[in-house]
Design a protein around this nucleic acid. Structure first.
Lengths: 111, 111
DNA sequence: TGTCGTACTATGTCTGTCGTAGTAAATATA
DNA sequence: TATATTTACTACGACAGACATAGTACGACA
């Protein structure tokens, strides 16, 4: 079965991550599991890719991080919250996706 | 208006190029114009990106090059012809596109 | 006690794209 | 006829994002 290579999805890693924190903040490990589940195992983001995306997006002002202890244990996690700027960026990426889809499909057999 | 960034389309440059030589060989300058036209100016491939894609794909056996003079003038052009391996690669990319589309849309608002 | 799952950080490499620049012949324009 | 533009590339170095690899550390479980 065909697998999704990182080169074809690389433009959407940020978008996927932002989508998952639109409603509530989350953290790396959780996000990575959700991407795997939502994609039905078709795409698994690499840890280093994920964490470097977070720090890049924080630098760009799309997310903010804060440290918080897990509910049950006293273990600390780094949570990320989407900013207004991040929400705008996400929306732009959604529009760009629509455009990209339209363009790419003209070069795909059977369209 | 949103523009298509190279990061989101980067996984499909090879696919677009191969699509344009499926029926008959072509050359760099022509391909670049066709991509621009077929995409209705939404995507313009950079010259360096295009030519390096050609040489990479030749190295990988997806295309073969040959030199030929232009019909009217005596000017030489480097034409590229798709190989059987290139056709397979193109087909795989089409399947991968279907999968990618399905996955990405789960992370896009309004889907 | 040791393994597994959780939750990361650090570092260096690789690949594809891009910016810049240059070459050179053919064609269009003045 | 001189000049500008279009055509058709090549060379080179920089950069960003993804990746492999490795390591840390804590908790749960057997």
């Amino acid at each position: 079965m065909t697998e999704i290579s990182s080169d074809v999805i690389r433009g959407y890693n940020d978008t996927m991550i932002l989508f998952l924190i639109l409603e509530a903040p989350s953290y790396g490990y959780e996000i990575s599991k959700q991407i795997k589940n939502l994609s039905e195992n078709k795409y698994v983001i690499k840890e280093t890719t994920l964490y470097s995306a977070f720090s890049r997006m924080e630098k760009n002002g799309y997310v903010e991080s804060f440290s918080q202890e897990a509910e049950n244990s006293g273990k600390k996690r780094t949570y990320y919250r989407i900013t207004d700027s991040g929400k705008n960026y996400y929306k732009e990426k959604c529009e760009e996706w629509a455009l990209t889809k339209e363009v790419v499909e003209r070069f795909i057999e059977g369209h």
